[in-house]
Write a protein that binds this DNA or RNA. Structure first.
Lengths: 226, 226, 226, 226
DNA sequence: AATGAATGAGCCTTCATTCAT
DNA sequence: GATGAATGAAGGCTCATTCAT
């Protein structure tokens, strides 16, 4: 029982540290975050970080790991929810999920911010998680696009389409502050998530369809735009 | 002549410092960058930073300022070049310019990387520049879209389209390393800039046209995708 | 007991630092004093200053505070000792105490030196303490002079007398080295403290008496000396 | 003529430097004074200090030298002025001169402040000047006291009296700020120089007379005060 | 298990001084 | 004669980490 109790206490302290660290890392980044600030917010001693985690790096690793798992879990549970829907509907739902995961204030605020930081420039210790997170997204997108096409898609076209989807999605959370400055009358973005998801989904479907048609008429490729 | 020479020498040292600082800041970010590393690369004494600029912050400010000016100048000169082209051509050229400015290896490598960092999370000292840089892009994009539409565009639709263009463009430079990991067979991206520009331009034009049509047939709005 | 022990250890280190800092500050002044010299003398790590005090300024503040308290405590305990004595005796004892506090080698040497520095030009952070220290002296002197007069004294006369007492006292500690150079045969001054106290007390009493008489014969003021 | 002109220019620059340095040294002390601040106030290049004087120390030396000479010259010219006066009158004039030299605002402000700093703790480079300055004062005082006594004075008594005079004088300039705090209603002191000089002179004469009488009646020494 | 005390490495900055012109 | 550019030495401070308890 002592072990159980201690374990519980330990887990509690670790959780408090991860939450506090998540906030601080998200707010000021890895370098500017100080262990003192984190332990102060968590209400524990400064030596607790080195005690429960081995060092600052490892704490950061665990924090990113938590955010990563929350995101991939979100995508997997979405796949189950949408089993009966059309490909177009599933694409739209998926896009909306990405947007919500990184901007919805009902989720822990720091999660999206932190992954935003990390996606932009992953740390050596965390790039695997980040890669996995994005790969989780990409795999889902590719599956959806394959369904849209109704058959195999050429790799380069898949690449272009997937990048376009992710690019259009991530600009909203990852350049949040700048967008708010450029279009102050259209902030906050979180309120327009359905509108955005609709736009991206439509555009993607239309572009995919156009690609499909073009590839079926190889004899007469459309003239380049520029 | 003495003044001229001295000025030249001063400018020379300042330039060496800005170049070296640009590299280092781009590589490891503001916090991890040390003045010693910068002055070592520039081949000057460590106190030179304090002499020519007042402190690390101001050096950083000047570095971002330089990158900012190079980018906005690039956009402006592009506008002159494309005076006789169709809107579609100009859009494609513009997209290609954004992509080249941030990925082309013939330009100072650090410029794109640094602005990438900054756009993601602008520093207090630099947010004005970053905002201006992006506003320069946005203004150009909006003008092109207005031409495409052949008339005024509703603000929210303009916002969605402009964000889509920027999102699709910036994902390539700003998530460069992650994309290389997700699609190792399609790296390096720099070699595919024309292809990407073509894709984004087509997609944008098609989406814009679709919007235009939809707004002309308000009686029968297309059913939502999802 | 753990807390008690830790507290003791902390207090011990702080005390060592304050003692070492007192010496160094007294010897070379605030600016020339280096934290390294202080921590070396105290036998602790250089970062200990920042840990126990926040910075060099705060350490200095605490050092001055200690010296201040020792001095004011000395004056207060003296007042209790001399309860039954005549005003003349008490004035003499008081003067001797001032002299001893700043020159007696049996007290921590740096205390007098440090206050000497501070009295000459108080730091922004310490002028309150210095003012209090001197005010403690002045209040005691004024009380003694009022007793000597046997009634209220005109403020300007009180001012002249108190300044004269303090001036005659402080010249010995505050211009110690120069006096040693001017009168090498009469050094060290510490051995002559009783003689000096006797001289200053006599002179003060005589001057006070003369003032008193003069004010009782306002009709025939004594001709100015010069 | 070129040499003459150059010499004149050189002297002019040196003078500007000494004046500016005097101000700065007086305001913030040797350590906190920076060469840049001095050369900025003097309106010359930063390298001028090392060019005209060899280093900061030497500049300081010259500044103190100037102040020293001004003071000793003042005492010497006073001696000539007062040739026909009584010893009492000359003592009073002398005291007034000391007070004016260190507090009168019509003189270069920094002179008194700087010597005040130096007297309190002479620098290795300047203690000779300071000693000379004070010795100049002491010699004059001793001569005046000898006249007052009308014959030779025992060395220890001379020491006590001279110290008392100097102590009473120097407390006003050297503890100026603190006195202003302790007696805010009696500031500024400069306006009360005649009153102070009168008080010190009277007190000194009276004390000297008392000493004289005591030494003439060795059979019945006065009982100690305390 | 958990903590407060203490540390060492490293960074930014200041400043007197030098050197080429 | 005089200067602006440039430097090297040194200091204060921060911070992650360790250790005794």
């Amino acid at each position: 029982m002592v072990n159980v109790k201690n374990n519980t206490a330990t887990q509690e302290t670790k959780r408090k540290l991860i939450d506090a660290a998540g906030e601080v890392f998200a707010e000021v980044g890895y370098e500017r975050a100080t262990i003192k600030e984190i332990t102060d917010r968590a209400g524990v001693a400064i030596a607790a970080v080195n005690y429960h985690f081995s060092d600052k790096q490892e704490l950061y690793y665990q924090v990113v790991r938590h955010a990563h798992e929350a995101c991939t879990n979100g995508v997997r549970s979405l796949e189950q929810e949408c089993e009966g829907c059309t490909p177009e509907q599933r694409l739209r739902r998926f896009i909306e999920t990405i947007l919500r995961q990184s901007m919805d204030d009902s989720l822990p605020v720091w999660r999206g911010m932190l992954l935003s930081r990390e996606m932009h420039r992953p740390t050596a210790a965390t790039d695997r998680f980040i890669e996995e997170t994005l790969r989780c997204y990409v795999t889902a997108i590719e599956a959806l696009l394959a369904e849209l096409f109704g058959g195999p898609v050429e790799r380069e076209q898949m690449w272009l389409l997937a990048n376009s989807v992710m690019g259009q999605c991530f600009i909203y959370p990852h350049k949040k502050e700048i967008l708010a400055r450029l279009y102050p009358d259209l902030a906050p973005v979180a309120d327009r998530i359905p509108l955005i998801a609709d736009h991206i989904a439509r555009s993607t479907v239309a572009t995919a369809r156009a690609m499909q048609e073009a590839s079926h008429r190889p004899a007469a490729p459309p003239a380049p735009v520029g």
